[in-house]
């Protein structure tokens, strides 16, 4: 494919828009995997669940997908807390979290996927909203609303979480438990309770990310697996615990994927996440914002 400024600029812009969506899918993994060392590879399954909640609410009741998932974030938060409590008792407390915990989340990923398949079938599902369709044209650059909304919501979500972690007491405790769980106990805090809140928060973000996903494109249940590589790539590239790092890494991944699919063809873009992950691990294992 020949290079043109027109194509290049559009690829950069849609990469940034895509990066905004990636912020939303990765922020939960930065919290649980980066900060709390919990390898929740079932995270994409919760994103898909969010997508189907949006689909169900939209097609059955005509509710806006974002509004539906914003409400669903509340039960999802409590579900996440419950899930962590189970994970803690079954694996973490016994010191078996590394391998058996991984197997647990892997199993969970499939259970959720199959459940979604049984309920919603294998067909691609989509939602309707006023911002799906229209496009803003600035010169030769086009910005579709269905990508602009996820950028705004994704960035906003990360900024809200940054504010939550740095401003609230429990937020500071989450940062503290990621740095030194014993020290948290020595000031009288229970690491398990703090991690429970953080895990709940992470699952809630996945639900919202699901709404963004189905706004961007039609989905089917097994679609979530495509995101496993991406979310872990973003967290590692961003420096594990750094939320600004998550934003920057999301943008890098989004732009790289967009450039690749524009100039080399869309079939290459899934390889980008793993490529970036390998390069990060080889060149700078602590990530961009890592210490």
């Amino acid at each position: 494919m020949t290079f043109s400024l027109d194509l290049f600029s559009n690829a950069i812009v849609s990469g940034i828009l895509l990066g905004g969506f990636y912020c939303a899918i990765a922020v939960g993994i930065t919290i649980v995997f980066g900060m709390l060392d919990i390898v929740n590879i079932a995270h994409p399954a919760f994103i898909m669940t969010g997508g189907f909640i949006a689909y169900f609410a939209n097609t059955q009741f005509g509710i806006d997908p974002l509004a539906a998932c914003a409400i669903a974030m509340i039960p999802a938060y409590y579900l996440g807390r419950l899930l962590y409590r189970f994970y803690n008792v079954a694996f973490e407390k016994r010191g078996e979290e590394s391998l058996q915990g991984l197997a647990f989340f892997f199993g969970l990923l499939f259970i959720i996927e199959v459940a979604l398949l049984l309920i919603f079938g294998v067909d691609y599902r989509f939602v309707e909203a006023p911002y799906i369709g229209p496009t803003i044209e600035i010169g030769f650059i086009s910005i579709p609303w269905r990508l602009l909304i996820p950028l705004i919501v994704g960035l906003g979500l990360v900024l809200v979480i940054i504010a939550f972690l740095s401003r609230t007491f429990i937020g500071k405790a989450i940062l503290a438990v990621s740095q030194d769980p014993l020290a948290l106990r020595l000031v009288g805090g229970s690491p398990v309770k703090v991690k429970e809140v953080a895990f709940g928060l992470s699952i809630a973000t996945a639900i919202l990310a699901g709404a963004l996903l189905i706004i961007i494109q039609p989905i089917e249940p097994s679609f979530g697996r495509d995101f496993i590589g991406r979310v872990f790539c973003i967290t590692v590239l961003g420096g594990m615990t750094s939320l600004p790092g998550t934003i920057v890494a999301s943008m890098i991944l989004g732009v790289s994927e967009s450039l690749t699919s524009t100039f080399l063809g869309p079939s290459w873009s899934p390889a980008i996440a793993f490529g970036l992950l390998l390069i990060t691990l080889a060149v700078r294992p602590v990530g961009i914002f890592g210490r």
Binding site: A173, L175, Q179, D180, A183, L186, V187, G189
Partner: peptide, 24 residues
């Protein structure tokens, strides 16, 4: 309260945040 061996501060939190968490 224990002032532990090796201090065990939260190294990437500020002085103020460390103190805040002290009042858990």
């Amino acid at each position: 309260s224990l002032v532990p061996e090796g201090r065990r501060l939260f190294p990437r939190l500020t002085v103020e945040e460390n103190l805040t968490l002290g009042a858990y």
